[in-house]
């Protein structure tokens, strides 16, 4: 464990908490892509199947449970409790355009052709594209609530911190997880234009609106 990974996990948790607070307090999931949240729940489900079989540490187990809970509660709030505020018309990204290539690639490019390893690989590839429906929705509506931009900032920051964690682990313990690193780079690249808008607009007190 290193400081980049801890900060990354905290940033990831913070993002999920910000989203839950936004939905709960505003009693609305306007501007939130339910499809992205479904994909995140799928990412955690397919990645944390070893929750009961492969004990790594208390921290690892607790965080996996918390992440799974946050993901499913968020999906429930969007499609259940506050479904009347769900903007399904603008949440129109075709999930099959993501799932088909990701499933195909996880069968082609993995470390070993076993069910748990293919599911782990699927979760890594899926996570790198899971935010696209959300970014697509913002580009379609042309704007995002400020609290939503904070959610996206910490969500993007988490994987950027993981990139630093992998550099650190490569130099200190010669650890190199190619599938996770390549996917993490792709994932972080998707946030770049958002990061630019966040830093140049939101941090200056303006509302995030796309030209």
């Amino acid at each position: 464990m290193n400081v980049f990974r801890i900060l990354g996990d905290v940033s990831h948790l913070l993002a999920m908490v910000i989203l839950l607070v936004k939905i709960w307090r505003s009693k609305s999931c306007a501007g939130i892509s339910g499809k992205s949240q479904i994909l995140f729940a799928l990412v955690f489900t397919s990645r944390y199947l070893d929750l009961l079989t492969n004990f790594i540490s208390i921290y690892n187990t607790v965080m996996k449970v918390v992440f799974l809970l946050c993901a499913y509660v968020t999906v429930y709030l969007i499609y259940g409790k506050f479904r009347k505020t769900f903007d399904s018309e603008n949440d129109s990204f075709r999930l099959e355009f993501l799932l088909v290539p990701v499933i195909g690639l996880s069968f082609l490019e993995n470390y070993s052709f076993t069910p748990t390893e293919i599911l782990w690989t699927f979760s890594i590839y899926l996570e790198s594209v899971a935010i696209l429906p959300q970014l697509f929705m913002i580009s379609k509506t042309g704007e995002a609530e400020t609290i939503t931009t904070h959610y996206l900032f910490f969500l993007g920051l988490y994987r950027a911190l993981y990139l630093a964690n992998w550099i650190w682990r490569y130099h200190t313990e010669n650890f190199y997880d190619q599938i996770a690193v390549v996917s993490g780079v792709v994932q972080t690249i998707f946030y770049c234009d958002f990061f630019y808008l966040y830093i140049t607009k939101v941090l200056k007190g303006k509302k995030l609106s796309l030209p």
């Binding site: 790594i56 690892n60 996996k64 470390y111 070993s112």
Partner: peptide
Amino acid sequence: EPKDLSHDEL
């Protein structure tokens, strides 16, 4: 060498 498949990261 076979990859360490412990996947100790979240």
